[in-house]
Simulated assay, not measured.
Amino acid sequence: MPDDAAQIRTLIEKWAEAVHRGDLDGVLAGHAEDIVMYDVPPPHEGIHGLAAYRATWPPFFEWQAQGARFDIETLDVTAGADVAYAYALLRCGTPEELAERPTLRLRLTLGLRKEREHWLVAHEHHSFPHD
Rank of each mutant, 00 (worst) to 15 (best):
P102V: 06
R105I: 03
H20A: 15
I35M: 04
V19F: 00
H44Q: 12
A68V: 03
A51L: 06
A99Y: 00
R9F: 13
E33M: 00
I12D: 15
L120A: 01
A68G: 08
R9Y: 07
A29V: 01
Y85P: 00
Y53V: 03
T103R: 05
A18C: 12
A88T: 09
I35W: 08
H130P: 05
F61M: 10
C92G: 04
P102A: 12
T103M: 06
G30K: 05
A122W: 06
G30F: 04
L11Y: 03
L75V: 01
H130A: 12
R69E: 11
T109Q: 08
A16G: 12
W119F: 11
L24T: 06
F60E: 11
W57C: 09
R21P: 01
A51H: 03
T103G: 04
K14S: 13
D82W: 00
D23H: 05
L89A: 09
H31Q: 12
A32R: 07
T74V: 10
D71F: 01
Y38S: 09
P59I: 05
P42A: 15
F61R: 14
G26A: 13
P95K: 14
T94M: 02
H130D: 03
V83E: 14
C92W: 04
I35Q: 09
R105G: 02
A81H: 07
M37F: 07
F61W: 03
R69Q: 14
H118S: 12
C92M: 06
T56K: 09
Q66Y: 08
P43I: 09
D71W: 01
Y85A: 01
I35C: 00
L110F: 05
V77A: 06
R91G: 15
M1V: 10
I12E: 13
G93V: 06
L75R: 03
R105Q: 00
D82P: 02
H123K: 08
P129C: 08
D82A: 12
